[in-house]
Amino acid sequence: MNKNTGLIISFLFPALAFYVLMALIPIVYSLYFAFFDWPGIHTVPLKFVGFGNFVKMFTSPRFLLSLKNVAWFVFLNVVFQTLLGYGIALLLGTYLRGFKQFKLLFFLPVVLPMTATSLLWKFIFLPNPTGVLNSLLSLFGVDAVAWLLDAQTAMNCIAAANIWQGFGYHLIIAFAAITTVSTDMIEAATIDGCNRFQRVMKIILPSIRNAIMISIILNVTGNLKNFDIVFVMTEGGPNNLTHVPSTLMYVEAFKYDHYGLGSAIAAFIFALSLLVTGVSTKLLGSKENV
């Protein structure tokens, strides 16, 4: 027995208690639902359907499209939020005059309520000629674009809004990480004649590798389940073409009263997350040396 057992238990317990009771058990319960059919009326008992809901889910073209959409959405977010967050952090450095103000400004979108952001961007992306972006474009003689109306561009627009809102998070993480990079190493490298670019590539980036991995994981897991922004901007439309699994889950359960199917989709999202977390923990773990 570890001599720290008492400490371990008492330190771990509060967090675990809250989490297990209020998050984990409910999700397991709702996963249980996935094997049943239920119209969402409390007097009606659950009807066991085995894997029926899962079959329905995997054979539904709408679901498969939602997978494609979310994959693209996550990809765009990971790439751009990380690039912007870390790129700008490196650019700003900690000695550039006014960097604090820049940092504050770039973080601003992060603090806005999701409903607010989605609404704002919905305005900006209005497809009619007097919409904000289209008015700007008309100044340059470009035709109005359909933005959220066009299945091709819609996902990109939603991603753009999400990137705008989120990159500030990663900017902060990047800053926190960069400042932990040993100044001695940097000075030594400078003395040795490294220029700025080499410093960044050879020393800073590898040192903050962990932080970048964390950012990427946060991005992936957060956006895989992202609901609000898609829902408010397009509600999965037009004609159900911009659904992601989480909005589909909502619609199936709360709109069509297919609570079993909705729970099946939730189960899928959750399983996917376990997979991603497991894989990324392995990756992170293997990079850990010293």
Partner: peptide, 12 residues
Amino acid sequence: FRENFEGLDYDM
């Protein structure tokens, strides 16, 4: 209808 009215929302 207006051009691109499919994207116009009710309040507008």
